[in-house]
Design a protein around this nucleic acid. Structure first.
Lengths: 222, 222
DNA sequence: CGAATTAATGACTAACCAGTCAGTAAGTTG
DNA sequence: CAACTTACTGACTGGTTAGTCATTAATTCG
């Protein structure tokens, strides 16, 4: 019996030979595995052998597609992050509503993205590795931070123009993002280690409330 | 000339022999060097040889004082962090003023601490290593996060009691800390790699403004 | 079907590194 | 000053790992 028989009732697909040639599918699978392992262990502790095994290939094959561990790491960051930035920009460009609603919507969107998609793991990775890979940090600033800040600025400008918002200085925009970043960092490192995850929706809602109106009681009397 | 002469005008201290016996001073010096190297490279990439060299001793001596790299790491975290938490608690207990002033004061204090003292490097280290050292994350939660949250809660309670603040749910307290944590993380990883440090005082002031009153314009009209 | 092409493999190597320990010398005691 | 104690050293070991390459086998083409 050289070829194992396919069990009755299973998919009519072919039984996979030990070594399949799948040049097109490999890079994506490798990058998926790399995200998994890099985000769990950090750059130095992640082993190419483990990434390869998770992708269902040998280490030699991994090095056929990526010239080094470092290049693999950078490619993984690009593939994970860039599509999501573009999508956020399109959402912002098409948004129809008040600046307040848009601000709340942006935070809620980021919270949902971080909790459902693996981009949520990127802030932790970038912060951990920025010192060792300044080049990566520069890429991150240019391709992610700048573009996210631009989206936030467009919301603020809309709000100021409509008389909804007070002006906000450019250097302080990061403060408006900080609760969502904290959420991602917490849920990807300290939270799981301690069994106390944060609820993304609740954090987004509370952050929007604080940042829009603050925790002080409104002065009713003049 | 077996003993090199001390140059005129220099300190009247003895010329250090190659091997000095300084049992009392070593642990502290080693922990300082460890903070330096661990915060620059992360746990896995930091080499005991390098830490020892920075502390002015050999690797063998390092292992005389700490049984392993991991124990050295934990001792370094404890020594760096604990004294500062206690000081913050004493400040809070002695504070005399409105809740608003206390909130602003706390953020300003944290900003100053992070920019002048090496505790500013701890958030990055903890977040990076929490997955690999769950035990460390638990220590951090219990000894730092809980106590910092308690200080913040005391401010919020004072504010609510005085009619200054609206009530804030316990799970959302982290949002009030997030700008200061973001500041520390940025200035210890992405910022330097990209030549764009954040100004701590400005971030503290803007964060306090946003969190107290929000970015929305106050409704003058009823 | 047989030859040619190339995707995939995994044993190998060169380098690295945490931790050890036999030996050295600084300091102490009688 | 001699005998002793102990802080300190650094060459070494055992284990690990990033990256290589000769070999194998899946696929294509004539």
């Amino acid at each position: 019996m050289p070829v194992p028989s396919v069990p009755l009732g299973s998919e009519p697909s072919v039984v996979p030979p030990r070594r399949r040639r799948r040049k097109e599918a490999r890079p994506g699978e490798i990058l998926d595995a790399a995200l998994e392992v890099f985000s769990a262990k950090g750059f130095s502790a992640a082993r190419p052998d483990e990434i390869a095994a998770l992708a269902g290939i040998s280490k030699g094959t991994l090095y056929l597609y990526f010239p080094s561990k470092e290049e693999l790491f950078k490619a993984m960051v690009r593939q994970t992050v860039l599509p999501n930035v573009g999508e956020m920009e399109r959402w912002a460009a098409a948004f129809d509503g008040s600046a307040t609603e848009m601000f709340q919507g942006l935070l809620a969107r980021i919270a949902r993205l971080f909790s459902t998609h693996r981009v949520g793991r990127m802030p932790k990775i970038i912060i951990s590795e920025a010192t060792a890979f300044p080049e990566l940090a520069q890429f991150w600033i240019g391709e992610v931070v700048e573009r996210a800040f631009a989206v936030m600025r467009s919301i603020l400008d809309r709000g100021v123009a409509a008389g909804e918002f007070t002006p906000v200085r450019a250097e302080a925009v990061i403060v408006l993002f900080s609760p969502m970043l904290m959420l991602a960092l917490w849920n990807q490192s300290i939270g799981p280690a301690v069994g106390r995850p944060l609820d993304p929706e609740m954090i987004a809602a509370e952050a929007a409330r604080f940042l829009l109106d603050g925790i002080r009681v409104r002065e009713e009397a003049r």
